[in-house]
Nucleic acid binder design. Structure first.
Lengths: 208, 208, 208, 208
DNA sequence: TATGAATGAGAATTCATTCAT
DNA sequence: AATGAATGAATTCTCATTCAT
């Protein structure tokens, strides 16, 4: 609009980019050392600035964790919602959800690790209420999906539903603990094999 | 129950019992709040004494974690060793290991949670070197077991070995995160169903 | 009651005494340097302990100010209430109130100084809501008293009531700024002369 | 108002004007929140600019306080000096001084508040030595004036001189705490009533 | 055995100030 | 003139640990 538009945009964009950079660094450190055990100084060191300087960009250590987690969860649910609205069968839906989950791990590994390790403790604070919401939504999604899968004859009916839910849930996310981008297997490869294990089991069967 | 047989024995036993009590409390708190986020005061509060009083029983916060973890690991490896020395086939060995693992979770849930969440960070300290040892031993045990299973024709050969290892490893231990003694399913029930899932998968097959 | 009673009481009393000691020190420092400009270290130094040690006794710097001010205000209002319930005439009530005020300054000088200098800023915080309450109660008390005095023919009717209120109010309390216990004049002497000034003025009159 | 007559003059004048604007804002904030509790950012926010920008105009936070206070004191003493050199009687001099004081409060209320609340603390710094000078000069002026008033038979001799001094001094200046320009009473109205109170007292006398 | 008062190192956070743009 | 990103010292507060009782 005005001749300053480029400049203003550039400035706003630069600021957002810096924030994102710093958040990525912070997420890395939180994930590898643990949120509580990570000092602001460690994050700042990793970012190459001084501790106090972080407070120009963020209100607090907590708000960094907040932004890291909410960004990741927003993106994850957007992906899940696309899958859920696609009208697939239970089994295909499950496959797609697992694939999206591994892509999420691929793109947000540190955030996923933080979510795994710290969300239980963080959820105590009011500002992290959305973690509980997400958790509940996650549980309903999977419970409904597994129920539907049993009804459609895709999933076994002889196993405890709660157990399956936890099995599937944990099985996917703990991979964030060891996954590294650029490793031998791509996220989609891993998703495929995880699905094979979860669906077909690891034993030799005639069907295999 | 019985009156103290001799003063010295009674005193020594009483002391050991008090230690165990306090350790159980500490483990509970470490597990639920996270080791780094748990203050000595929280532990003391949970035990109904004052912070300083814990130092009559223990050298440091670290030594509590140490004792909690090493006690658990000792017992776990003792159980594993009994299984491994029984000369079973790969598949039966795996089943027995998983069963023992769930029994371990049953008896040492807080310790398992701590092990899961904190061992990576704690292992940095020299006194926790045994955590790395245990980890390595765990990895070789499973890798060898899975390898043997494939060789014996019990386990599928078409999946990435590393992936299966991680899958099985995580799958068992994360259960400590939600397991509660005295729940609807016993530890052995859960072990059985977990094995069914891991071995046979959750999809419907003709074999099922 | 129990044989330990003396001990327990002694301990509880000792603790209360230590708190009071530290609060007196803190009040001194807050009063002389200003609350915001006083660091916890300065208070601790004045008390001969380390900064962190203060937190064994108090939750925060704010809670020290809180306790200092509320203790003082409680005592002041207790004294005022005794006067107000004595059923005196307006003029005698005023004299008694002023006398009690100077006694309050005598016993709680630092608290009064803090009240004077900082209550406006502190009152913003929720925990200091009672400062506003006290302020309002103070204003109603004086306004009613002056009104009654005018009705009884004791006080002049030709002056702005709001102005008199502020005049009397400030006149009494600012004395905390320079008063020192054990000076040439006792609190009661000062009260007497202040009353003479406020009631009769400083100019020479035939009546004087 | 008029177009800038010359560039240099216009620029210099504009700069001076901006400084004055910013100082007025700063004084407002210092007065209402307290000097120590006021951050540079609060001042900048109130001025609609960023914190760092203030340093284009001023060397430091301290220099702002310095300029605010010295400007006010210079003007006050100029007014006082005019009165003192007019050769009036003690009583008339006092009346004129009080009137000038309220006019000062009217024009420099924030500065007066800052002077009241902070000069004791600020005076510690070398650059604020003039605060002490002013204070001493103030005390001699009043002491001499009251002494003269007693000698001239205008003021009562039965009251402690030090007390009267403090009474008059405080009585005038604390008004800055509640005075607002444009209120019901003008500065001169207030001065008149204050004088009536101080000189004649608030009780009903036959002379009144 | 446990208490209670303290220590002291280090945590998160604040803020006056600087400086390149 | 003003911005925005940083600096670095200081501040409040925390907490593992000690120790006399």
């Amino acid at each position: 609009m005005s001749p300053r538009r480029r400049d203003t945009e550039g400035t706003a964009a630069a600021r957002a980019e810096r924030r994102a950079e710093l958040l990525a660094t912070a997420a890395e450190v939180f994930a590898s050392q643990g949120y509580a055990a990570t000092t602001i100084r460690k994050v700042a060191d990793a970012a190459g600035i001084l501790g106090g300087s972080l407070y120009y960009h963020f209100d607090s250590k907590e708000s960094m964790a907040d932004e890291i987690l909410s960004t990741f969860l927003d993106e994850m649910w957007a992906a899940y919602d696309r899958v859920l609205q696609a009208g697939l069968g239970a089994r295909e839906t499950m496959e797609a959800i697992v694939v999206e989950s591994f892509r999420c791990i691929d793109r947000h590994r540190p955030a996923v690790v933080i979510y795994q390790n710290e969300s239980k403790h963080l959820a105590a604070g009011e500002r992290f209420a959305y973690l509980l919401d997400s958790h509940r939504r996650f549980e309903s999604m999977w419970t409904a999906l597994l129920e539907r899968g049993v009804a459609e004859g895709a999933f076994r009916a002889d196993l405890d539903r709660g157990l399956i839910y936890r099995f599937v849930r944990d099985t996917v996310w703990v991979a964030a603990g060891w996954y590294r981008t650029g490793g031998r297997l791509s996220a989609d490869d891993i998703a495929k094999q995880y699905l094979a294990m979860v669906l077909e089991g690891i034993q030799v069967t005639e069907a295999t």
